[in-house]
């Protein structure tokens, strides 16, 4: 493998990893606060692509406006899921909430299959994403270049929100101790709702960029990215925002690199991530940035 192809593959990996990172944040925020694996998160990601698609292709909105409306709709869907399905089960046994999350996920997927059909739709891409750039001798596609740049900008905004704003502080406080935060006069329900809005908006943005990268969208497109992003959150240390980002990049780069170095195993690409998950659970279950989770006795 030449240096140039290596560089090209690395860029591919970073580009893919940045999308996993966007998606992993939503998982880690919700897990940190509610201890719940939000199985529907990958489906909100899918909805982001479809909402933008409909806004642009059917309602004829300009590309950028269609995408923004799509992201806002995702945030609304995220809040609706929390309000309708998860909130009534907040004090129920853990397993009930998990089953509900699986139910919501399956509901969105199948509703998608029934309404828009299983046949993939072509996603309209702006020229910016279609251009080809020559960087250090390597041909880099517009998506490969712009997706990580836009993602990093979004991640920077997110870090600012989580660590530098009042809402972010409230989110971290609820994650640490929900009851104590409630006693401090914080409206916990509102914080949780906003957490879902934020995570879902990121998922929506991720979905749109994914659709730019792989412009055939279908109702099941969120399943694998969702699962891999959750794995990324585990690898980074579940509950930790920075860890989720790092985990996302690790998974993305590893997935691309293994496929690049062992082309005969390309069909098993998805299985690599499973291997990484099992490896981390065996060696360092708390993840790269996480503290050891220990139940309070």
């Amino acid at each position: 493998m030449t240096w140039v192809t290596f560089f090209q593959q690395l860029m591919n990996g970073v580009s893919l990893g940045s999308l996993y990172a966007l998606l992993a944040i939503g998982y880690t925020l919700v897990y940190g606060i509610l201890g719940l694996i939000n199985f529907a998160h990958g489906d909100v990601f899918m909805l982001g692509a479809y909402f933008a698609f409909f806004m642009i292709a059917i309602f004829m909105l300009p590309w950028w406006l269609g995408v923004i409306v799509g992201i806002v709709l995702c945030a609304i869907v995220g809040m609706t899921i929390e309000r309708v399905a998860y909130r009534p089960l907040r004090d129920a046994p853990r397993i009930s909430a998990l089953i509900t999350a699986v139910g919501v996920s399956f509901f969105i997927e199948n509703l998608g299959l029934v309404t828009v059909g299983a046949r993939p739709k072509g996603f309209p891409r702006p020229d910016l994403m279609k251009n080809v750039y020559i960087l250090a001798g390597a041909r880099i596609h517009g998506v490969t270049l712009w997706v990580p740049i836009i993602s990093l900008a979004i991640l920077a905004v997110l870090l600012f929100i989580v660590y530098r704003t009042k809402m972010g502080m409230a989110m971290r406080a609820v994650a640490k101790d929900m009851e104590a935060t409630r006693l401090m006069g914080v409206n916990v329900d509102r914080v949780i709702l906003l957490t879902f809005a934020l995570g879902s908006a990121l998922a929506g943005a991720g979905g749109v960029m994914w659709a730019c990268k792989y412009p055939q969208i279908n109702p099941l497109m969120g399943v694998f990215p969702g699962w891999k992003a959750f794995t990324a959150a585990v690898v980074g240390g579940i509950g930790n925002v920075v860890g989720a980002m790092i985990g996302g990049f690790i998974i993305g780069v590893a997935e691309i690199m293994i496929a690049a170095f062992f082309p005969s195993l390309t069909g098993y690409r998805d299985a690599f991530v499973f291997g990484i998950l099992i490896f981390f659970l065996l060696i360092k279950p708390s993840g790269i940035m996480g503290e050891t989770l220990k139940e309070k006795v």
């Binding site: 694998f224 991530v273 099992i278 989770l293």
Partner: peptide, 15 residues
């Protein structure tokens, strides 16, 4: 502790 079984078995089913 936690729900690692859920995420690993879900992955396994797909893998």
């Amino acid at each position: 502790r936690g729900d690692y079984l859920a995420i690993a078995t879900f992955g396994f089913g797909e893998i």
